[in-house]
Every structure is written in C-alpha cells, then in structure tokens.
Amino acid sequence: VPQRAWTVEQLRSEQLPKKDIIKFLQEHGSDSFLAEHKLLGNIKNVAKTANKDHLVTAYNHLFETKRFK
C-alpha cells in the first residue's frame, strides 16, 4: 500500500504541479478508480481537463477507499 506523498497543504499549493498528482494517481489507483474520476489517459490531457480541487478530492478518495492497483 502506498503512503501519502503530500500533506493537504502541499496538495493545495501552487508549488505542486497537477501532473505530479495525476502521475501518482495513475501509478497507484485501480483502473476502475481512475475511470470513475476521469483520470485515465495521457497525463497532459488529463491535466488540461482536471482542476486541482478534483485531483485533491481523488487523491484523498484513493486513500479512503484503498482502491489501489
């Protein structure tokens, strides 16, 4: 089981690129989880459509539901 890579403050910070969060989610989330949160596909394309709040919610949801690969 992966550990949380970032704190809530870090997740919301401008310093953390959306692409980093997407990469983490794609590496650790199950396909059904990723599909549900519309996070499947090319990281660049996902970054265009997903806002930061959406990614933070998905990140927290992944750990709450433990839907890891």
Rank of each mutant, 00 (worst) to 15 (best):
F68A: 02
K48V: 12
A5D: 15
K38C: 15
P2H: 07
H28F: 14
K18V: 12
A5R: 15
P2Y: 04
Q26E: 02
N45V: 14
Q26M: 07
D31A: 13
I21S: 00
K66N: 09
N45I: 15
E27F: 07
K48E: 15
F68H: 02
A35M: 12
L39Q: 00
R12E: 13
A35Q: 10
L11M: 08
Q15S: 13
N51L: 08
T49C: 14
V46F: 05
Q10I: 04
L11F: 02
K23N: 08
Q15G: 11
L40N: 08
Q26W: 09
P2F: 04
L62A: 01
N45T: 14
A50Q: 08
Q10D: 14
H28G: 02
A5Q: 15
H28E: 05
K69V: 06
E27G: 07
K38E: 11
E14R: 14
T49A: 09
E64F: 10
L34C: 05
E36Q: 12
S13L: 02
A47C: 13
P2E: 04
K18R: 09
S30G: 05
Q10A: 05
E36N: 06
L25D: 00
S30Y: 02
A50S: 11
K52M: 06
K38S: 11
K38D: 12
V56N: 03
H61W: 08
H37T: 05
E36S: 07
L55F: 06
G41Y: 04
T65C: 15
H28Q: 07
L16V: 15
N45E: 14
E9N: 04
L62F: 04
K66T: 06
A47H: 08
L62H: 01
Y59D: 00
L55M: 04
N42V: 12
I43Q: 06
L55I: 07
R4G: 07
A35W: 15
S30L: 06
L25P: 00
Q10W: 04
T7K: 03
F33T: 00
K48D: 14
I21N: 00
N60W: 06
L55W: 03
A5H: 15
R67E: 07
Q3P: 09
H54F: 08
A58D: 01
K23W: 06
N60T: 12
D31V: 13
E9V: 04
K66R: 12
K52Y: 11
Q15L: 12
H37V: 06
S13R: 02
W6T: 06
L62G: 00
T65E: 11
P2R: 04
A5W: 15
K48P: 06
T49S: 09
T7P: 08
T7Y: 03
Q26V: 06
S30K: 05
H54M: 13
L55K: 00
H37Q: 08
Y59A: 02
K66E: 08
D53M: 07
E64W: 10
L40Q: 10
L39A: 02
L40E: 08
R67H: 07
K66G: 12
D53F: 06
F68L: 02
D31Y: 15
Q26H: 07
V46D: 03
K23I: 08
V46Y: 04
L39I: 07
H61E: 14
L62W: 02
L39Y: 01
K23L: 10
D53P: 06
G29T: 01
T57R: 11
N51I: 08
Q15P: 04
R4H: 07
Q10C: 08
K66W: 06
V56E: 06
K48M: 15
F24D: 01
D20N: 09
D31E: 14
R12S: 08
L25R: 00
D53K: 06
F24K: 02
R4N: 09
N60K: 06
S32T: 11
Y59P: 00
K69N: 07
Q15E: 13
K66F: 09
N42P: 14
A35T: 08
K66I: 04
D20L: 12
P2W: 03
Q10K: 03
P17W: 04
V1S: 08
A35P: 01
L11K: 01
G41L: 03
F63T: 01
P17R: 11
I43N: 06
N60Q: 12
E64Y: 11
N60S: 09
I22F: 03
I22V: 11
R4C: 14
A47L: 12
T65Y: 15
E14Y: 09
Q10L: 05
F33V: 01
L62M: 07
L11E: 01
R12P: 03
Y59I: 03
V46L: 13
A58F: 04
T49G: 09
L25K: 00
Q3D: 13
D31G: 12
I43S: 07
F24G: 01
P2L: 05
K69H: 06
E9M: 04
W6D: 06
K52A: 04
P17F: 08
R67K: 10
D20Y: 07
D31R: 15
T7A: 03
E64P: 01
H54N: 12
K69D: 04
E36A: 08
